[in-house]
Simulated scan of single mutants.
Amino acid sequence: MSDRSWDDPVLPTRDARDEYAALVEALRAVQESVTRSAPTPAAAAASARRLREIATALDVFEVDEDNQPAGKRWELAGRGHASAPPLHLDEVTATTARGRVTVHRFHSGRYAMNGGVTPLIFDEILARLANRDRPWARTAYLRVDYRAPAPLHCELTVSAELVRIDGRKRTMRGRLHHGELLLAEAEGLWVELRAEQTGNLSRETEGVPS
């Protein structure tokens, strides 16, 4: 298991067979199955009851964000999160990263990858590269240009590049391909946080009107 730290080593991902990794894979399977199915009312109600039972069983193990493994299983594709397609990192250097991802119907936008999923993939790889062996920075902006529909059920390749560092600013660039076909390009800016900005934002804003 991860040490549950937010310090990302940004290494190539690997397969894991532990129980928590299996739990996340099962959750992804449920998401995909719900998307693909048209259950009868009785089957939908029965499945909903079983899922609520699982949620209740896990509620007793709730921890705060600093201690959760979700999002911190850095060695896993997807980091132990099930919201975005699991991104496999294959090669990482100080200024570049390359990975692959396969998208199924849970992330579909009518026979192709939903356009909102593309920024999730880019933000994952670009942010991790932007923060590799550097003080923590957050996304300031991310622009995505779409060149072609991204197919489902196919392995797509994604690349990232650190273009330049200017003080606290880190300019990043990414590309998503299916074979030789360019599907999307991204450009983003990550800004290094000041010392007073690196704490728990939810605690810092308690009681502050939204």
Rank of each mutant, 00 (worst) to 15 (best):
R73W: 07
R143T: 14
V163D: 09
R79Q: 08
A70P: 02
V117K: 00
L201Y: 02
D7V: 15
R100G: 10
N67M: 11
S202E: 13
L11K: 14
V103L: 06
V158S: 01
N131I: 07
E206Q: 15
R105L: 12
V10N: 08
E192R: 10
S2L: 02
N200W: 10
T139N: 06
L142F: 06
G78F: 03
W136M: 13
A195K: 13
G116R: 01
S83A: 12
P9M: 08
D145E: 13
V191S: 05
V30M: 10
V30T: 12
T95I: 05
P149F: 09
A16H: 15
V144D: 01
L76R: 05
P209Q: 03
R147Q: 09
L156K: 00
G199R: 02
S5M: 04
A42I: 08
L76K: 03
A97W: 04
R194L: 08
E32H: 11
R132D: 07
V191P: 03
P12D: 05
T157I: 02
A148D: 12
R36L: 14
L129G: 06
L181Y: 06
E196S: 11
F122E: 00
S47F: 14
V34S: 02
L183I: 14
A42N: 05
A140R: 10
I165W: 00
E161A: 13
E75K: 06
R164V: 02
L87F: 09
S37V: 11
L183T: 04
Y146C: 01
H107E: 00
R98C: 02
Y146S: 01
T35K: 13
L51F: 15
E155K: 01
H153A: 14
F61H: 13
Q197E: 15
A97M: 06
